[in-house]
Design a protein around this nucleic acid. Sequence first.
DNA 1: GCATGGTGCGCC
DNA 2: TTTCTGC
DNA 3: GCAGAAAGCGCACCATGC
Length: 830
Amino acid sequence: MPPTMKPALGQSSLKEMWGGKKKQKEPKIEQKEEEAIEGEAAMDVDTVKVFKGTRNLPWKACVSRFEPKTAESSKRKETPATEEHLSDQVRIKKRRILTSDDESDAVVNGAEPGTKSLPATSPAPSSPTSPSTSQAKSSPRSPSTSQGKASPKPKSKGKAKAADVVKTSRTGDEDAAAAASSGDEGDDGENEIDGVDSEDELVVSDGHVASKCAEAALSKKDDVDMKGGWKVGAPVPYAALTKTFAHIEATTKRLEKTAFLTCLLLLIIQRSAKGESESLLQAVYLCINRLSPDYIGIELGIGESLLIKAIGESTGRSNAVIKADLQKEGDLGLVAMNSKNSQKTLFKPKPLTIPFVFKNLKDIALTTGNSSQAKKVSIITKLLAACQDFEAKYIIRSLEGKLRIGNAERSVLVAVAHAAVLAERERSNKKWSQEKLAARLEEGADIIKGVYSELPSYDEVIPALLKYGIDGIREHCKLTPGVPLKPMLAKPTKAIGEVLDRFENKRFTCEYKYDGERAQVHKLADGSVAVFSRNSEDMSKKYPDLVEQLPKCIKDSTKSFVLDAEAVAIDRTTGKLMPFQELSRRKRKDPLLQKSLFERRQLLREHFNIVLGEFDFAKSSDSETTEEIQAFLEESVKDGCEGLMVKMLDSDLKKDYLAGVGDSLDLVVVGGYYGKGKRTNVYGAFLLACYDGDSEEYQTICKIGTGFSEEALQSHYKTLKPLELSKVRGDVKVGGAKPDIWFEPQVVWEVLTADLSLSPVYTAAQGLVNLLWLFTTSQKLTMEFKVEDRGISLRFPRFIRIRDDKAADDATGPEQVNILKTLRAGPVLN
DNA sequence: GCATGGTGCGCC
DNA sequence: TTTCTGC
DNA sequence: GCAGAAAGCGCACCATGC
C-alpha cells in the first residue's frame, strides 16, 4: 500500500520526529522519508529548517513581540505570562519605492520547505533557537488585525486590481492586452495567429488592430444605443448600460468586449451636457462595480441571503423556491430576471436611469444601524420593481459584487481611453489616417492607465479627462499624497535557478523581506499623515503610533511623500531584529516612479532619518554572486525575517516569487456544494475529510474548489452523483461544515495545500496532542506539546488528481495531518 | 446580554 | 490566496 | 502572458433574534 504521505511532506525533521518522540507508528513512513531526502531538494529544505531555527528570540518573546496591546488579544492566544516584560511597538521599515520595483522583486523565501533553494551550504550554524508555536505563527498577523479592530476603524474595501502600473506606462511591449487593443502593426504575427479564424477577414486588411477596434466600436452603436437614443443632457438610461453588459457577456473576445463598452461610453460622452462629467463617471463606476474610489470604501453590506429575500419579496415567491432556482440557474441575477419577466405588470414602470440606480446603490451602502437590513431589502425591492429586460439581472449582480461579464476594471480603463480619443476625433472633425488613429488609441490607453495608477480615483480622473482631454490629463492628475496607489504583487515562480539566471550580469541588491504588514505611508504637505494597506485600505487609525512617530523620522526639508513600507512589530526593550530594507520616495512633483531603484534609494537616504526602534532603512546587500545571496539569506532569517527580496538595481526584471512546493494529502470526498456561474449544474466545490482508523470516522478538513478543469468537474459530477446520500452518515465528524449534499465516503483525491491552520469549523485531528514546536540544535531535537481541541484545516487546498488506487479508509489520517501542520508551522514565525 | 448568521477582507 | 480558460 | 472568473480559510464586524 502506498504510504499516505507524499515524499514532499516528510523531510528530515519529520523523520527525526518519528524516530524520536512519536515512534510508535508506521515505520514505513520513515523509510519513505529516506527516499525523499535522497531524491528531492532535501538538503535545501534541511538548511532552511535550520535557518528557521536560528532565530534568537525565545518563543515567548516572539509571541509577545507581536502581540497587540489590546486586552482582547489575550483571549485568543494563550500568551505566556512573561508578556508584561515586553512592550510592543510598531516599527516601520522602509520598503521600497512604489510599484516599479515589484517588478523586479524576487523572494528568496527561506521559509518554504521544498523550495529549490540556493546552493545550500551544509546545515547552517545552529544557535539558540527560538521555538515558536503554531500560535506564535499566527501572531505576526495579530498586531494588525486585532489592534486595528480594537480601535474603531473605518473599514474600506476594494480589491486591488493589481494593475501593472508602472510597467504598463513604461514598457508596454509585452503587455499583450494593451498592444492588442491598441494596435501594433508590426507584430500582428501574434495577433494574427489568434485572429486568423475570423477577425482578419472581418475588417480592414492592413491589420491595424487598434483602428479595427475603433471601427468595431463605432459599428456597435445599434447594439448599444436605445431606440431613438436619448437627449443630450438627459440622464443615461440604465437599459443602455445593461444592454451593453449583455453584449459584452455574450462574447468571449476581449477586443469585442472593449468595443461594446467603448461605443457606449462614447455615446455617453457625446450626449453629456457641456461640462458635465457625472454621467460618464457613474457609468464607469457601474461598470467596475464600485461606488467610490476604493480607498474611501463604501460597502453595500449585501450578500446572497439578503438578495434572496429581496427577490422573494419583489416576486412574491418563497425563499426556498428562489434557492432552488439559484441552484438550477447558478446565478441570482438570472433568477431575478426570469421571475421578473414571467410576471405580468399592469403598468410599464418608469425607466431606470443610471443616476437613479447609482443613487439607490449608494443609499443601500449608506444605510446602517437598526433594521438597516430591512431598509436595504426594501430599496432593492423597489429597484427590482422598475426593472425591464436585462436590468434585473445586472442590478442583482451589481449588488452581489460580481458583474461576471468578463470585463474587469483594466478593460474598462481601456474603453474609457478609447472613447475619449474617439470623442476628441469627432469633435475636431478631422480625418485621421489609420496609423494616426491607431497610435492615438494606444497612446490614450497608456496615458489613462498611467494616470489612473498614480491617482486611482475616478472622481478625479474622469472629470479631468473630459475637461482637459487625453493630452491634458497628465498635467492635472498626478500622484497625490492622500490617495493610495496600487502596489503590484509579486508572482510565484518555480525554481530559484530560473530567477537567478535572469540576474546574471546585472547588478542587484538583496533586501530583507520583513515579516510584517505592507503599509503605504502618505504625508501631505499640510502635515497630515495617512497609512494605507496593500489594498488601499485606510489604516491610519490602526497605526496611531506610526502616525505620531513619523515626524521624527523625517528630515526638515522633506515636505510630503508616499512611502511604500513594511510595518513590523518589534520588541521595544531589546530592539531585537530588523535589519533594513529599501526605498521610498518623496515629492509629489516629479514622482520618482521612473527613476531606477538605485537612484531612488539614494534619494530615500537623503530625505529620512533613522530613528532607533522606530524607523530604519531596509537592510540590504548589493551582491553579485549567489553565494553572497545565500549568506545574506541566512543572516536575514537569523534576524527574524522571512527571507529576502531580490531586486534589480538599475533595470527592470520580471517579478518573481519563489514559492515552496506544497504538501499533498489523500482525502475523501464526503460532501458537495452546488456550483454557480460557469459551474452551474455541476458541483462547484467539495467537502473533504481525512480518515481516522482508530475511531473509524471521517473528520472534515476543508472545502476545495480550485484545481479542477471544467472537464474534471464534469466527470466528478458523474462519479459523485450516484453517491449522494439523503443525510450525513454517522461516522462523519462534521464540525461546522454545511455542504449542500452529502456523499458516501468512497472517492479519494490527492490534494495539495499551501499551509495548515487551526480551525473553528473542521474536525480533523481534533483532540490530538499537538506538537507545538520543534527545532534542531546540531543533532538534537526539542519539542513541546499541547492538547488542541480545535481541528485542523487546509489553506488554499487544490485538487491534484484522483487516487482510484485508494479506498476511503486508506486516506490520510489525522496523525499525519497533525504532524504536517507542526512541520509547516515550524519553529519559526513565518 | 449573548449567540448566531451574514458580509467583507486579507492571504505572513 | 490558487487555478483554469480564452484571447 | 494576460485578464477574468471560479474557488479556499479565518477573522472582525454588524445586525438580528432569543
